[in-house]
């Protein structure tokens, strides 16, 4: 039975599909967070070098991964929306941005709090920290551009262009910052020697990142449904949905 994928590309059918998927992802997120945190705090041993401070890794690394992945996924959806003129893909891109920005801020915040006990300063101009900061600026640029344009169609397309230009620039920015960092102070602060990953630490971190995935998908789907309602408010199916809701 050939699945007709395009059926779900129309906002109306996607609205109900997302409605069914959101509870699944939410429950998965809650369970995985609980398991991940349990492993992180109660099973993983104390690190011989960093003592207990390394436990921040269980939120810091997943957040950093999420911030990068979500930007790439946002750029992909924006690109599809621009190329195929599918409104739903652009709505997805718009829905992803705030969650991505939140994870970027989280990665920076937990990174700073982890850096303080380890390197003695809140902020170190290390290549990865700096590129993470620039990634936050890219997110904010995307969101403010979309907020500044009233007509949703133009906002989607303009956002798509800046997202694609941004995603092309991410590797360039990363390598130029890396080159700049090693040239200036010579990697006195080498972050690369992360704590020797005991098995439980690794599993704890992986579970936490999957939990972050589930959470991100759930929140993004909810926001997409809200955007669908916002943009399709004049259509019949929203009117009748509205009638039911009362």
């Amino acid at each position: 039975m050939a699945i007709n994928w395009f059926k779900y590309s129309s906002p109306a059918s996607f609205y109900f599909l997302a409605g069914k998927m959101i509870p699944l992802f939410t429950i998965a997120a809650i369970i995985l967070f609980a398991v991940g945190l349990y492993i992180g705090f109660f099973v993983a041993p104390t690190d011989f070098q960093q003592g207990e401070a390394y436990r921040i890794i269980f939120i810091h690394v997943p957040a950093a991964w999420m911030s990068m992945f979500l930007y790439v996924i946002m750029a992909i959806w924006a690109g599809i929306g621009l190329a195929f003129n599918t409104r739903l893909s652009s709505m997805m891109a718009t829905a992803i941005a705030p969650t991505g920005a939140m994870f970027t801020f989280l990665a920076l915040w937990t990174g700073a709090l982890w850096g303080k006990p380890m390197w003695g300063t809140w902020w170190v101009w290390d290549a990865r920290l700096t590129s993470e900061l620039i990634l936050l600026f890219l997110y904010i640029g995307f969101m403010s551009l979309q907020a500044a344009i009233d007509d949703p169609r133009r906002a989607d397309k303009a956002g798509a262009v800046i997202a694609l230009v941004g995603v092309v620039n991410i590797p360039i920015i990363y390598f130029s910052v890396k080159w700049w960092n090693t040239l200036h102070q010579g990697a006195t602060v080498s972050v690369t020697q992360s704590p020797k990953m005991a098995a439980t630490m690794l599993t704890g971190m992986l579970i936490m990142s999957i939990a972050c995935w589930m959470y991100a998908i759930a929140v993004i789907l909810i926001r997409t449904r809200t955007i669908i309602l916002e943009r399709e408010r004049h259509t019949a199916w929203v009117g009748e949905l509205r009638g039911m809701a009362q």
Binding site: I134, F137, L138, I140, G141, I162, V165, S176
Partner: peptide
């Protein structure tokens, strides 16, 4: 806001 992040590699080099 849009363009400054893209200028950073040029500023660095």
């Amino acid at each position: 806001l849009l363009v400054l992040p893209l200028y950073i590699p040029i500023l660095i080099f």
